[in-house]
Design a protein around this nucleic acid. Structure first.
Lengths: 111, 111
DNA sequence: GATTGGTGTTAGTGGTAACTCATAAAGTTG
DNA sequence: CAACTTTATGAGTTACCACTAACACCAATC
């Protein structure tokens, strides 16, 4: 599954919000998500699997519990793509600014 | 449709790549996407409608042609969410770094 | 070691989104 | 104005993804 597909699900985004602040046991995440979205433990567990498989979350065993924390590497593709795009239109804005600037200069020259 | 849902589609991402560099007529986008993804003009047009409706693209009429250019405002939600999240784990990293730093200091103190 | 708690997995189902096909609308050209 | 170009829209179909239900697995507790 693609990094953008991962982020397109609101349950997964909420989960990432939770584990980005501090690590959380699976059960804690289930509690919150169950309350806010009304879905089952199984559903949450499947989302957690996706977050693991796509590099958005890391797991640590603590007895029977599984503690999830954020894994920044999952965001690399997304960040790269967004930065590339914003670079493009930023440079377009720059050349527009330059154009306006040179326009101003022309105006001055005409005066 | 959510901003993240918009970006989850590869055709829409490719389209945004195209129009972020310079404005393109609908037909030009169709040509590229048709070649790369093998989908119809209709499908592309429907994607363009989504990009319009969600604030990712702006349109300019030029006779029968419609020229699409990027609209940065669509990215606001995405950028905000990502920045918030990265802020969280960045501060977590900071406190970890502080912890390590203070650990080093303790080591020195022990020597 | 039986039972309970915590979590993950699998099979099957329903809803949604992306597609095609057909058609409309609006502009251009001969 | 008829034919053609360019783009958008609507109806209908298909594929996929998120969900539930049932079960499996492992650890803890009595």
């Amino acid at each position: 599954m693609n990094a953008f597909d991962v982020l397109s699900d609101p349950v997964r985004r909420r989960t990432l919000e939770l584990i980005s602040q501090k690590e959380h046991a699976s059960g804690e995440i289930v509690k919150v998500v169950e309350a806010e979205f009304g879905i089952s433990q199984s559903a949450v567990s499947q989302h957690l699997r996706i977050l693991r498989d796509t590099g958005f979350a890391k797991v640590r065993k603590d007895g029977a519990k599984r503690c999830y924390e954020i894994d920044p590497s999952g965001f690399d593709d997304v960040n790269d793509w967004l930065e590339l795009l914003q670079h493009f239109w930023a440079s377009k804005m720059e050349s527009l600014a330059t154009e306006i600037e040179s326009g101003k200069r022309s105006d001055k020259a005409l005066n």
